[in-house]
């Protein structure tokens, strides 16, 4: 992942890395076989915990770690820009207790339910949803084709290709403009 110059000039606190899995949606868009996300506030261990938190809140098992890593990077950036966010996140991570990452999903869900009203949890939930579904990896994973203007819209690319229901009579629909 490319980072703005400003981020490079800061001391790096941690790193999230991974391999691009062959055949995954990420493989279609990745530039190389490995990816890495630089962090300025969280340690590698804290970031790894946040990755598991994000994966517990919004679990898409087959969606690549790289997409979740972008969530953590966005939170890291917020924490770098705001001391109160940094403190809140750090204490939130500590509040999960030791061994959180190694626990089975059902246990992790229980732990997160206990902290659900907290700012830490609500920030993690909102940020995960806000960032995860905007990533190119998520677009590819969910089959979402995104903006269509550059490709001439969906008019000739499947906006009406559904065939498992009856066609709508012309009176209640309308003619193709082309």
């Amino acid at each position: 992942m490319t980072l703005p110059r400003r981020e490079f000039l800061k001391a790096t606190s941690g790193l999230l890395t991974g391999l691009v899995v062959a055949g995954s949606p990420l493989a279609l868009i990745a530039r190389g076989p490995v990816w890495a996300v630089d962090l300025t506030v969280f340690t590698s261990s804290e970031a790894a915990t946040l990755m598991i938190v994000a994966r517990t809140i919004i679990p898409h098992d087959k969606l690549d770690d790289a997409a979740y890593a972008l969530v953590i990077q966005a939170i890291d950036r917020d924490a770098a820009n705001d001391e109160t966010v940094r403190k809140m996140m750090k204490s939130g991570i500590a509040g999960l207790g030791s061994g959180f990452t190694g626990k089975p999903e059902s246990d992790r869900v229980e732990i997160l339910k206990e902290v659900e009203p907290s700012e830490f949890f609500q920030t993690m939930r909102l940020k995960t949803i806000q960032v995860l579904y905007t990533t190119p990896m998520a677009y590819a994973y969910f089959g979402y084709e995104g903006e269509a203007f550059s490709k001439g819209g969906y008019l000739t690319r499947g906006f009406n290709d559904l065939r498992w229901l009856p066609e709508v009579p012309l009176d209640d629909s309308g003619p193709m403009p082309l």
Binding site: G158, N160, L165, P166, E167, V168, D172, G174, P175
Partner: peptide, 13 residues
């Protein structure tokens, strides 16, 4: 004329 029916509208219809 009306707009042509999309997939989503075919389901609604």
């Amino acid at each position: 004329p009306g707009l042509p029916a999309s997939n989503n509208f075919k389901v609604m219809y």
